[in-house]
Amino acid sequence: MNDITQQLKKIITTDLDVNVDETSLVGDIGLLEGGIGLDSIAVMELISIIEQTFGFEFSDDDLNMDAFQTLTTLSEFVTQKVSALKI
């Protein structure tokens, strides 16, 4: 598991007010309804913590369901954004 995935996992399980433990949060489990069930408020908190932790801002177009489907898709999205910062 890469470092960004690990960090995201920690953010979701410890920084958000949700009832999810690290063992159940595997890569392909859904983050929203049908998965671990993050609601809008948890998603907003997650966005804010990701922006602070990784130092980039979500654009309007970034705020879509695709990036937040699973831990893996979110990790891929954040990796892409962090890489773009380094260019």
């Binding site: 809008s40 998603v43 369901m65």
Partner: peptide, 29 residues
């Protein structure tokens, strides 16, 4: 259906509504 902030923003981009019915939490967000 199953409104959340991400889905709402997606809809907003596609449908471009001029009247929206929301709950107060979504307004605050």
């Amino acid at each position: 259906a199953d409104t959340n902030i991400l889905r709402f923003m997606d809809h907003q981009r596609r449908f471009k509504p001029n009247v929206v019915y929301l709950n107060p939490t979504l307004c605050a967000m």
